[in-house]
């Protein structure tokens, strides 16, 4: 057994992520050109959008793993749902912060209550609620069951958040990459996809580690329980 939660696989993954980040920074800040309308602020895009999309993906994995838990009742699904939501929350926080900074520069305000921003903030609070349920001092199986149901409910919120710009008229700009008439510079498009890949790698890397940590936390809980049972047994033997 090694001392941490790393394995040869995650070390490679981690190294790739870090190298990818460095390359992404180079492309985002130096190599890719400034935008015609947004000028230099467009560079925010390469962090803001990938973190958002990867965070949405993370919540979908939480929803899927919650369904998996409710169907199979196996610990792995439960831990997977929790780990994915935790990493997703961090990425969504990054989205919010980068978005606020970007908004300050282009809209003049950090925050405005349009549908996309409102729903993102709500989604963030919902995830915090989900993580709070995961920390309830309960019997593990009961906690997992509650968490799975709350996790399931992240699904509609994530979908609404993702399609907010399409469903409502918003200040926030709508889908840019998938729109057919989008004329995006090749380097910019490449930088964006690089961002997706790098933040995807970061997500998987952190997910594996969080999965292992949560798994070990459960083992520690079990140890505590076994210990307590053994102690009661010893007491009983001592009396008789």
């Amino acid at each position: 057994m090694n001392d941490g939660t790393s394995s040869p696989g995650t070390r490679v993954l981690g190294a790739l992520t870090l190298i990818g980040m460095a390359v992404l920074l180079a492309f985002a800040l130096v190599i890719s050109p400034a935008d015609e309308t947004q000028e230099e602020t467009v560079r925010m895009f390469y962090v803001h959008v990938p973190t958002a999309l990867v965070a949405f993906g993370a919540f979908f994995l939480t929803v899927a793993a919650s369904v998996g838990y409710l169907l199979r009742r196996s610990e792995g699904w439960d831990v997977m749902a929790g780990a994915s939501a935790e990493v997703g929350a961090v990425l969504l926080a990054a989205t919010l912060v980068s978005g606020m900074l970007w908004g300050r520069v282009t809209w003049g305000v950090y925050w405005t209550w349009d549908a996309r921003l409102t729903l993102t903030a709500l989604l963030f609070v919902l995830v915090l609620g989900y993580l709070a349920v995961r920390r309830l001092p309960l019997e593990r199986e009961r906690r997992s069951r509650l968490a799975a149901v709350v996790g399931l409910l992240l699904g509609p919120a994530t979908v609404a958040c993702h399609y907010a710009t399409t469903w409502w008229r918003t200040l926030h700009q709508g889908p840019t990459i998938t729109t057919a008439d989008a004329k995006m510079d090749g380097t910019m498009l490449f930088t964006f996809f690089l961002g997706m890949v790098v933040f995807g790698l970061l997500y998987v890397w952190l997910l594996v580690h969080r999965f292992r940590v949560l798994w070990l936390e459960h083992r520690v809980e079990d140890l505590g329980l076994d210990e307590a049972i053994a102690e009661r047994r010893r007491e009983a033997v001592g009396v008789s």
Binding site: T118, L122, V125, L126, L128, G129, A132, V133, L136, P137, L138, L146, V149, V150, L153, A157, A160
Partner: peptide
């Protein structure tokens, strides 16, 4: 009702229920 039964019987229900329920109900409010 979904969140009410979920939080019922927990020692932290008074604080947990608003945290879980209010963001969910925000769309209704809006």
């Amino acid at each position: 009702s979904v969140y009410g039964i979920l939080a019922a019987g927990l020692r932290v229900r008074e604080t947990l229920l608003p945290l879980l329920l209010l963001p969910v109900l925000a769309p209704v409010l809006i």
